[in-house]
Design a protein around this nucleic acid. Structure first.
Lengths: 220, 220
DNA sequence: GTCTATACTTCGATAGAC
DNA sequence: GTCTATCGAAGTATAGAC
């Protein structure tokens, strides 16, 4: 399995001109260029404080530059948010589509759920901001993000529908509500998942897949 | 079943002194006193725009008063948020505990899920704000809310654990993760539920209970 | 219980030098 | 690509009259 999003990170590094600031002994510091760190830093800040409560001042400080310098890399604060949303949706769509179209049909749904969880948690900050901060966007800029989000959800809807037709998923609940239930099960995870905790993303993905497909009831 | 929260609304009305402003033909307007409308109006605003992006100006406008007049009813903006969080948790805890302690043990979990959904959607704005805007609270004021939230979640944890011991819920997944999965299934609902839609809260509650307990798999 | 007026702070963004 | 300096707008909250 290719690591989700690693391509983009490298692309940003290359595109930025690769300005590196050697720092001697301080090995902990992220020495990638400002352009390369901007989106990730903004996503982490937005997730922690919320978009509206995050200030360009704090973002600049986290990046180690003056706030005026931010505007060389972005056109405005909401530009960052749009970029985060689109990038997050691009990544998860790519990743999930990959497994949705391969392997034995019987295991596709479980594989999709697992891949979704792994990808969403790999891009945790970006993904959370995309899910929660959409309302902070001016309406004009919101629609393009909503379109891509609906497009992704449509992918899940289609998969569940085909599973219903194949008789593997119950047909007594509308596809729409099965899809929404699955999204419930997946999306709230970003609020509590702890990377330092005792369950790895992949294992959590399998657990959620089990609960969605088989339920919580004990069986002989 | 008693209607969740209706008691509080009446209490607020009474406590405010019951100032009523007759308005002639305009029957659509909420003519309860400012004090009675404040929390609900604030919750609706906070949910739509987010706490940080909501201004006292807009809140005052929605209430039909000047922004300075708000401070007769509250000590500050974050005072409103604390009140909303506590009230929302008080209501759902009361409602859910009621069904968690009555009726046949076999149907308690499903009843709890249904009651949770009905209550959370009845108090939709307050409940959503409580779930999402906690991070907007100054840390000192956050802890008391977190305590009550954890207390509520503990109630669900205990119920699931007892169901596991009774052999009705699978024991091969830790109680902790079964509880978190259930909270996933419940909490994200506030992001998409449409009161004008084709599924009533109670029916949705039963559907989510079915998916959690039985899963999505079709069975003979 | 609501008003007008305003104090004080912080925000996003720009101008222009280096 | 980053800096210093600053602008204008918008925020929360308070003072004091009615």
């Amino acid at each position: 399995m290719s690591e989700p999003g690693s391509d983009t990170r490298e692309a940003a590094e290359t595109a930025s001109g690769g300005t590196r600031r050697p720092r001697g002994s301080d090995a902990q510091v992220d020495d990638r260029s400002t352009a390369a760190r901007l989106i990730e830093t903004a996503a982490a800040l937005f997730r922690r404080k919320g978009y509206a409560a995050s200030t360009t001042r704090e973002l600049a400080e986290l990046l180690g530059i003056q706030k005026a310098s931010l505007y060389y890399h972005m056109s405005g604060k909401d530009d960052l948010l749009v970029t985060i949303c689109h990038e997050s949706l691009r990544r998860i769509t790519d990743q999930v589509r990959e497994v949705a179209e391969s392997g034995p049909a019987e295991s596709r749904l479980a594989n999709v759920i697992e891949r979704h969880v792994v990808t969403a948690l790999h891009d945790r900050d970006m993904h959370a901001v995309m899910l929660i901060e959409l309302r902070a966007l001016p309406v004009e800029r919101r629609t393009s993000v909503i379109e891509r989000r609906d497009q992704y959800q449509h992918l899940l809807h289609e998969l569940i529908e085909s599973e219903q037709k194949a008789g593997r998923i119950r047909a007594d609940i509308e596809t729409k509500y099965l899809t929404l239930s699955l999204l419930n099960l997946l999306n709230w995870t970003i609020f509590w998942f702890d990377p330092e905790g005792d369950m790895a993303p992949q294992e959590l993905g399998r657990t959620l897949a089990t609960i969605f497909v088989e339920g919580a009831r004990s069986r002989p």
